[in-house]
């Protein structure tokens, strides 16, 4: 729909009336008398949203309302030297502001840890002559648990109560922060897996299953407790067998992979059906 712009005559009349003394007849009256109230409203409502018509009005103000034009010029004359001295507020670059909508500053420490621990583990593993279990298999399930905790747990995300009360809290924020975390984690693990020659599915599926597992459990008992519980599970079913038996734990055998995939899908479904739980304060416990 195209908006009808006020005619040049209407704008001239508007500028003319504005210059008139209140209550008095405009000096040097235009034919047709003053604008009616509804016309003034309509013109003003349009002017508020149309820069083009404001420019047209500015052009006629000079001839129709010299008093107004003189006032505006006087104000500008005083403002201009001031305006020159005002330095615009330093703004963070656009990408930095965008980034904050995906990742909380609290996740920075997790980011640094992930980016350091994984390559170090790979280097140590290679220097030891290539052990029996690739480090990427050990780290893949626990890093997302810590990442989810870093973005939600009360102790790690200081702004949790402010965030919890906002309309964006809930499934959207859960998906954003989780996606951002995985966007960092998966490439790092992919590189580590490639160096040590591990099939991607073998670490990716447990990684995703632990991610949704933390979110599901977090929605029920709070993210801090969920993270503690899942780190314990990780230690019991993955770390302990490796330390005790020095071989690949049976839960990471290729035959078990469909189970991890199933857990991931199930977890994602539960997160979506229970999405309202993530708008409450209890999630951050």
């Amino acid at each position: 729909m195209t908006v009808p712009h006020p005619s040049a005559r209407l704008l001239a009349r508007y500028a003319h009336d504005a210059a008139a003394p209140p209550g008095g007849a405009p000096a040097g009256a235009l034919p047709g008398g003053a604008l009616a109230g509804d016309e003034v409203w309509a013109v003003e409502a349009h002017l508020e949203s149309c820069a083009e018509c404001r420019a047209r009005l500015a052009a006629v103000v000079g001839e129709r309302a010299p008093a107004v034009a003189a006032l505006v010029d006087a104000v500008w004359a005083e403002l201009e030297p001031l305006a020159a001295t005002i330095v615009p507020a330093p703004r963070r670059p656009r990408w930095a502001r965008r980034l904050a909508t995906w990742m909380t500053p609290a996740m920075l420490s997790w980011l640094v840890m992930t980016a350091l621990v994984t390559p170090l583990a790979v280097v140590a593993h290679e220097m030891a002559g290539g052990g029996r279990v690739a480090p990427v298999l050990v780290l893949a399930p626990v890093l997302p648990v810590l990442g989810v905790a870093a973005s939600w747990a009360r102790g790690l995300d200081p702004a949790y109560e402010l965030v919890a009360g906002t309309p964006r809290a809930g499934l959207e924020l859960v998906l954003r922060r989780t996606a951002a975390m995985l966007a960092v984690l998966v490439p790092v693990l992919l590189a580590a897996g490639w160096v040590t020659g591990v099939m991607a599915a073998q670490w990716l599926l447990p990684c995703l299953a632990f991610t949704t597992g933390t979110l599901v459990l977090g929605g029920l008992i709070g993210m801090t407790r969920a993270a503690v519980a899942l780190v314990t599970v990780w230690a019991a079913v993955i770390v302990a067998p490796i330390l005790a038996l020095s071989r690949l734990p049976s839960v990471l055998e290729p035959g078990v992979l469909p189970v991890w995939g199933g857990l991931f899908v199930l977890g994602a479904a539960v997160v979506i059906t229970r999405k309202h739980a993530y708008t409450l304060l209890g999630v951050h416990r």
């Binding site: 502001r97 904050a100 500053p105 949790y160 109560e161 809290a169």
Partner: peptide
């Protein structure tokens, strides 16, 4: 709704403007 919790945490690295901008974004 506008809400100021009793002990509210915030991101220390944000400037005041960034903090309020971030909250405005969260408030859609």
């Amino acid at each position: 709704i506008g809400y100021l919790p009793q002990d509210f945490g915030y991101y220390k690295r944000f400037t005041v403007r960034e903090f309020v901008e971030y909250m405005a974004w969260l408030k859609e």
